[in-house]
Structure formats: structure tokens, C-alpha cells
Amino acid sequence: MALPANRPRPAVLEQIRYSGYLITKNSLTTVGFGIVLVLLVIALLAPVFVPHPEHAVLGTTNVAEALRPPSGRYLFGTDELGRDLFSRVIYGTRISLQIGTLAVGLALLIGVPLGLVAGYLGGFVDEVIMRVTDIFLSFPPLLLAIAVAALLGRSLTNAMIAIAIAWWPWYTRLMRGTVISLREKPFVEAARMMGTPATRIMVRHVLVNSLSPVIVQASLDFGSVILTSAALSFLGLGAQPPQPEWGLILSTARNYFLVAPWYSFFPGMAMVITVLAFNLVGDGLREITDPKTRRL
């Protein structure tokens, strides 16, 4: 509605070009999207340009070269077992993006349908679902994730599941609010009046119109989820050695903080940059999906 009526037909290409324009309009958003893109490329191409993939994926050690400072040979230095930190941090990107995608994805998969059903059906169903989310939301998310991870056993997969379990109620709440405001809109009434089955109304009319805020929230959460999983790994509940997970690397690195500061610095920076980039992207998406900027 914010668009002038004579705007040319929004073919898919046109939409993409327009999104591109909105992304580049704000320089911080551009930086965010740029970094995320670079991170994706790094994660995908890690085996191609990393000098010592065996230090990252296999348990190979090289104790003779332990704790070397950064140099031409070892860009980020080496750890206490002589493994190339550069290779390990780069491979860590893979793991972190994987965790972010899977944990947020799983949380969305649980949270969005529940919020949709609660908001659309209301009444008793709504009451039950919302009280359950209230219970989950009354725990600090990290604590809840720690408890679940401890319960499930130590592994990266379990850490992801634990994070999803701590995160889904937020999506349920957000979704429910959006759905309630859409439920009374005339196009939903029209669909009910013409006898459209409830499931079809929920998917074709309500869901597609309520995803924008959830997508924005999910991209903002991507960073927090990576941090939480790093925290779990730091505490020994997530990734297990020799996996090159940033949190796990940091938890070993802290023992050598005074003698080998680079050991903590590089994985820490990688984490800061990644989380920052996803936050920038989230903020940018919020602006892009704002109905005042456009109708997405």
C-alpha cells in the first residue's frame, strides 16, 4: 500500500532487485550481509584453502610445534598440541553456522506451528499452549539449555536440541501475537465465510502473512544461539574434542591465556564478528520488512 500504484509488476527478479536496493541503502546492513556472505563462503570452501585440515577434522597433533605465536607458517599461531589455529578457527565457522541454522530451524519448526494454532484457534488450545510456553520462559535460556544438554548427554547434536528447546517459546509468543492481529482481518473472515477449511486458512492466509516478524527475530537470534552453543561447549556440554568448535577452543585456551594470548584472541574475534554480522542483518531485515518501508 505504501507503493505507488503504477509501479511495474513485481516479477520475482524485480522483487530481488528491490530487496538488494533496500539492503544497500543502509551501510551497516550492507556490512552485515557482506560479512555473512563471506562467512558462508569460508564455511563452504574451508577444505580448499585451509593449510592443515587434518588439524581440524582429525585428531592429528604436532606437539613439537606447540603454542607457536602467529607467523607466516601458522597465521593464527598453534595450540598446546601444535595444531594450526587458523585451520581450526576456519573450520569452526562451519560448525557455528551449522549450529545456528539447525538450532534456530528446529526452534522455528516447533514454535511457529504452535503459535499459529494457539493464535488462530484461541480458547482452550491457546490457554494450554501459552501456559506451557510460560513455564519454559520462566527459566533463563542458557540455564535451561544447560539442564537439557546435561540430561541428553554431551554432544554437539544434543547441544543444538537443547538450545532449540530453550528457544521455541519465543517464536510461539511472537507468532501468536501476529496471528491474533491477522485473525480478525476481513480476508480471513472472507475465507471462513466461503467455507475454506481451517488448516488451509491457517497456512494460506495467516501463516504467509505473519512470517516477517518471525524471520527478523530468527536472524537476530542466530547470533545468540551461536553464543549459547559456544557457552555449552565451553562448559563441556556441547562439542567434544577434537572438534574445532569456538567455545571449546576458548575453554582450553583460557589455560594458556598468559603465555599464548593469540590462542584465545582469534576464536574470540571470530565469534564476535559472526554474532555482530547476524545482528546487523537482523536489524536490516527488520527495517526492510517494516510495512512503512515496503509491503514484503
Binding site: 480476508f187 465465510m193 502473512n209 509491503r295
Partner: peptide, 20 residues
């Protein structure tokens, strides 16, 4: 009823699903 009775709403903006 659902087949033989239909309705036109006041608000022509929100009565059409913007994503369809």
C-alpha cells in the same frame, strides 16, 4: 450456506490477502 452465500466487505484493502 458457505457455497450459496457470499459477502463483500467494506475495506477493500484488508479484504484481499496481500500475498495471493
Amino acid at each position: 450456506l458457505r457455497k450459496e452465500a457470499q459477502m463483500v466487505f467494506q475495506d477493500p484493502y484488508w479484504s484481499l490477502n496481500p500475498r495471493m
